[in-house]
């Protein structure tokens, strides 16, 4: 069953343009000129109930604009949106009882007050009974491990602690869908992992549908069964993560620092950069085994440092474009 249905969604913005220099500044005050920008350009997709869907794209791809339209903050230029049977632009208030939202950089908690106060206030705003609020707070503090944070003013919490409280706050009214806009942005690796685990747990325990945006390829791999990649306002790819990984995210980048000079000559290993004893190589995990390659690399000399990472999202996207234009040779899912 689909809980979100989006059809031919478009959003255009008018942007003021300004020529350079003093003359341009004056001109733009008295005679502004506008340019039309297609922030979201004809996208369609569905989200199934209980699914975790990642909406991925680089900055300015149209992720936030889409999420704002799905929640009713922005009204579409054209196209249809159906969220839990409601039209967000028309039924924003009704919809707000059924969805929870966390915008990574914006807080819905009162800065100078401890989270507990904010929770109680939000309970009143969502017109929940006191006993229900108490029950929810007890449950959520357990789930999010924030018991010891409840009495500390938000301004004294770390970003990771704050995000946990933010997500907990957005779940107080037990929403059916949770929108998370860049929930892991600005967090370090350990905290990022914690938030990811939390989101997984949430999806399992509460059976809630989760719609998250990110520009971090790691979020997709670990969280979702399906991802939609958006770029320049258009859907580039709408695939299962399994397929995505196999076809497009099969590259890994390995940075190795040796203590001595080495000569790398292993088949299927492309050298990206080599400077002094430090080497950056790329391998294709669909043709070779990471395990073996690393063993080979370590054998070459004494290793001082080694890191394995995903190529940046921009690279994956350009990879997708390339493969699409070549076409044909994609491996289909075999199940």
């Amino acid at each position: 069953m689909n809980i979100i249905n989006v059809k031919n969604l478009k959003k255009n913005f008018k942007v003021k343009t300004k020529k350079a220099g003093l003359k341009g500044s004056i001109q733009s005050i008295f005679n502004p000129t506008y340019r039309e920008v297609k922030a979201v350009n004809d996208i369609s997709f569905e989200v199934e109930k209980g699914e975790i869907l990642a909406f991925i794209g680089p900055n300015g791809a149209g992720k936030s604009t889409t999420i704002k339209m799905l929640t009713g903050i922005l009204h579409p230029t054209s196209g249809d949106i159906d969220v839990i049977g409601l039209i967000p632009a028309k039924n924003r208030k009704e919809l707000s009882y059924k969805i929870g939202t966390v915008f990574g950089q914006k807080s819905q908690l009162w800065f100078h007050l401890p989270p507990l106060d904010s929770f109680h206030l939000l309970g009143k705003i969502y017109e929940l009974s006191d006993s229900y609020v108490e029950k929810r707070i007890a449950y959520l503090t357990e789930l999010f491990e924030i018991k010891e944070l409840l009495e500390i003013p938000i301004r004294k919490l770390s970003l990771g602690q704050r995000i946990r409280c933010e997500i907990a706050a957005s779940l107080l009214h037990n929403p059916e869908i949770i929108f998370l806009d860049e929930p892991t942005i600005g967090l370090d690796v350990v905290v990022k992992q914690k938030i990811r685990d939390l989101i997984k747990k949430l999806n399992k325990e509460e059976k809630s549908t989760i719609f998250l945006t990110s520009h971090d390829a790691g979020d997709i791999e670990q969280l979702c069964k399906r991802a939609i990649i958006i770029n320049h306002g258009e859907i580039v790819l709408n695939e299962t993560v399994k397929n995505l990984k196999y076809n497009y995210m099969n590259k890994k980048v390995i940075d190795i620092k040796y203590n001595e000079a080495v000569n790398i000559n292993i088949p299927d290993v492309t050298i990206l950069k080599s400077k002094g004893y430090a080497v950056k190589v790329e391998i294709d995990s669909s043709v070779c085994d990471i395990d073996e390659i690393i063993t080979e690399l370590i054998k070459l000399g004494k290793v001082a440092d080694i890191t394995i990472s995903d190529p940046p999202l921009e690279e994956i996207i350009s990879n997708i474009y390339q493969q699409k234009s070549i076409g044909g040779d994609r491996v289909e899912e075999d199940s």
Partner: peptide, 11 residues
């Protein structure tokens, strides 16, 4: 853009 938070509350 703080306004967004208020838009998302049922009041």
């Amino acid at each position: 853009g703080e306004l967004d938070s208020y838009l998302l509350q049922p009041k």
